[in-house]
Design a protein around this nucleic acid. Structure first.
Lengths: 118, 118
DNA sequence: GAAATATGTAACCGTATAGTTACACATTAT
DNA sequence: ATAATGTGTAACTATACGGTTACATATTTC
């Protein structure tokens, strides 16, 4: 039941990623750490809303906070995303499998089409 | 703004994956398609609850339905997961980067420790 | 010390969500 | 035809969530 374990331990991560604003915050932080206020100014919602998103991201360990004077710099912690990646890993084989069956399907249809047109 | 697009188009996928039961349903379907009832019996929640999860997964195109007699077989459609994978792709570089800095950190600490013990 | 700045949190609101039970509908079995 | 089976949905409940405004707190500036 290793999958089970991975799935449940990364529960906080998956639900943190469910919100588009939070994903965008992470995308922003990929370019470097920023103080909370600057993050908030990058989005069309209120500062407290972003503050709450940051709290959630913090709890999911997707960001970390570094106090500096009166500012709090947030930086990305990509580590929990590894769990998402390893969950996804088990599905990658299906993509190629489906590509193969799609290819087969297309070829069959092409053959039919050819036959029909003659 | 390609990231933005990827992020928003996969919104349904990300929120579908937020629920642990739904992830477990997908995990189950990796082993092959199953009728709705059998899926439901695999979980400690009521059948209607699973029926609703399946509806959500269907809308996110993560599963597809095939009616067969009075049963409805559900099978995995991994295609939408590609968007998640490509979102993650932008973070993979950070893992190795962090591993490198962790390595550097550990080596520095080791050097300090060595010095201290002499 | 007072004003300005940066931030988090509490209280509240509306909506979404995950669960339940009760019911409707289609299909198969008797 | 009737009963049994498989499934989805409606109605309802409790809770979580994303947003807001108002406020508290810490730090810097003047």
């Amino acid at each position: 039941m290793r999958n089970r374990l991975v799935t449940s331990s990364s529960a906080a991560t998956f639900s943190a990623l469910a919100d588009p604003t939070r994903r965008a915050v992470l995308d922003l932080l990929r370019q470097g750490s920023r103080p909370a206020g600057q993050i908030a100014r990058s989005f069309p919602v209120s500062r407290p809303a972003i503050s709450k998103h940051l709290r959630l991201l913090r709890r999911a360990h997707l960001v970390q906070e570094r106090k500096q004077g009166r500012q709090r710099f947030y930086h990305l912690n990509p580590e929990p995303l590894k769990a998402v990646d390893s969950w996804l890993e088990q599905y990658r084989v299906f993509w190629s499998a489906n590509l193969a069956s799609l290819k087969a399907f297309v070829e069959t249809e092409y053959a039919k089409e050819k036959k029909r047109s003659t």
